[in-house]
Design a binder for these strands. Sequence first.
DNA 1: CACTTTTCCTGACCCAGATCAAGATCCGCA
DNA 2: TGCGGATCTTGATCTGGGTCAGGAAAAGTG
Lengths: 255, 255
Amino acid sequence: MSEAIEGGCAHTENAGLACRVCSLHRLCLPLGIDKDDLDRLASIVSRRRPPLKRGEYLFHAGDPFKAVYVIRAGSVKTVTVSREGDEHVTGFYLPGELIGLDAIASGRHPCAAKALESTAVCEIGYAELETLSRKIPGLQRQLLRLMSCEIRHDRNMMVLLGGMPAEERLAALLVNLSDRFRQRGFPANDIRLSMSRYDIGSYLGLAVETISRLFSRLQGEGLITVQRKHVHIRDIDALCRLVAAPLSVVDERRI
Amino acid sequence: MSEAIEGGCAHTENAGLACRVCSLHRLCLPLGIDKDDLDRLASIVSRRRPPLKRGEYLFHAGDPFKAVYVIRAGSVKTVTVSREGDEHVTGFYLPGELIGLDAIASGRHPCAAKALESTAVCEIGYAELETLSRKIPGLQRQLLRLMSCEIRHDRNMMVLLGGMPAEERLAALLVNLSDRFRQRGFPANDIRLSMSRYDIGSYLGLAVETISRLFSRLQGEGLITVQRKHVHIRDIDALCRLVAAPLSVVDERRI
DNA sequence: CACTTTTCCTGACCCAGATCAAGATCCGCA
DNA sequence: TGCGGATCTTGATCTGGGTCAGGAAAAGTG
């Protein structure tokens, strides 16, 4: 998740044909919408300026729900905060991915979204999105698809967290990130982690120390090479084989 | 989840004003739709006959996705099946709850749905639902709300499975079931579990033996009384306090 | 009804991963 | 360029819950 991942055309300030020329359109809401309608979509999208700096919040837990957001460049984690104040990471988001869908039901964001690095986002007012998706069938379909994807992903995480051993969890995350990197046109075997070991541990339900040890172990076994935030995948097949246990998880894009 | 939970009007065979007179309409898709549109919704709903018997499948993992289902009476679990053949329970569904939303994205059901007891369902063709929800804003809104709810619920489960100790997990499930029972007009402190200890363990990421021990322990502490499938909640507040750690989980309806 | 099968409970033991502790390395900043 | 606080790594120890084993109670079944 290096800063090099620059999805949209960051130079365009206003909407215009923003979505039409955005390199992420095959991953994002525009998928399956024809040219004319794309501009209608673009008209309700606003490009938030300036980009979030590392550590800044896109929204906090409990904030009223006004809009969903798409990462244009950079990356974000979502976290729930317990009463005692300790965070639990519930997701990592890359360019083209939609954040905030879990807030529709209650009208408030149940979790916070925090930038893991310098991050640019598109903001889409939800009221407008709902209205427009009634008029553009392709948009409605894609919105539902993305939400369904989110559900399936979270189910897979539940299976992972509910039963799989530590090594398999980390392997699953790496395979998944690798996949999502490739989809975004980046080398699938050179991953720059924008999140800390602590974040990874929290996400996978493991202690930071365990994450460190696992990285060392996987490196020792020759599957990866780790240098701090930079992970080079040397044997993706072996990594996949580690994950292979739950069939349904294997062919998923997002874990 | 006794057979006593009879939500809809099981006597009506065809659609007609089915949704309009269904006692579950406040929990199900009809919420927020006016009278006239309700009948339009009912026209795409079919009441599957006969009801599923305990252990029968509503659909299998990998089945092509044609329709979503609403439980009318009884209960269902969803399970993913690993290559080795062992099941992992990903959800329990009560009357009024929608099953199959995780299949929209891929066009195939990623998990199977299995009746926990004698269970009646409404079947709603997805193509028709998508089309109709474009015409009835209230339906579109409720469909999105239900999916959002599902996402939020799964996030909470991830937090639960990722970090909370065994006792807290079980307490969370009990509180949640109690809540959902109340919503359906049943006593909140007399729960009849339709699922086995094994199912509960799988769902919570714990061994069957641990579930047994926890039931005994909670009973020993005077919080509940357990007799096989029947759980009587004696101190709901204490149970909630056990769960209280993650603030965001507390006020959820479904865990 | 007995007789099998399934489900559930409880105790004894063990292990994956948490926790505790101590360095090492990196990074932001003056 | 060097200082101070994160962040990361590695080792030693501990423990919650898994696994194994055996028996009891239900629930089917002929």
